[in-house]
Design a binder for these strands. Structure first.
Length: 133
DNA sequence: GCCAACGTTGGC
DNA sequence: GCCAACGTTGGC
């Protein structure tokens, strides 16, 4: 069981969209490091959903429901996607500012690699975030 | 294989 | 809207 954080621009696809859809294909990743993390995802893992640009907060979580497979939106056939299912939308989103000021979250890759869109999160970090949402 | 040029992301 | 950071592309 592993924990992840995935980023999305809510103008493109938001937690509200995922809540309404129930499930989605997490496609569109076009970065090798992010792809490599996607390829490590297993069915049953959970992912925090982060709204970048407009929001800058962790807004909910999803359940990974498939292993990786070729991203149908990628004509080069180099990139992968996974399926995921809505779990919850947080009543109190966990903001980027809260991440920055919480010493327990100082190692989150979100802070160090601001452009990485799929990243692993440790269980203790995941639990720390869930305590406050 | 290096690296300059370029494009994109995302915080501010 | 700006721009720093960073990933990718392509000429050499």
């Amino acid at each position: 069981m592993n924990y992840w954080l995935v980023k999305t621009e809510p103008g493109n696809y938001s937690i509200q969209n995922l809540e309404k859809d129930g499930t989605c294909v997490w496609d569109g990743v076009r970065n090798y490091q992010a792809r490599n993390f996607l390829m490590q995802m297993k069915v049953g893992d959970t992912a925090l959903i982060y709204h970048s640009v407009h929001g800058k907060e962790i807004v909910g979580q999803s359940l990974i429901t498939s292993e990786y497979y070729p991203d149908p939106t990628d004509e080069s056939k180099k990139f992968m996607c996974v399926d995921m299912k809505f779990i919850s939308k947080f009543t109190k989103p966990y903001s980027l500012d809260m991440v920055k000021t919480n010493p327990k979250l100082s190692e989150l890759r979100l802070l160090k690699q601001s452009r990485l869109s799929v990243m692993p999160v440790s269980q203790s970090e995941y639990d720390e975030i869930l305590k406050h949402v």
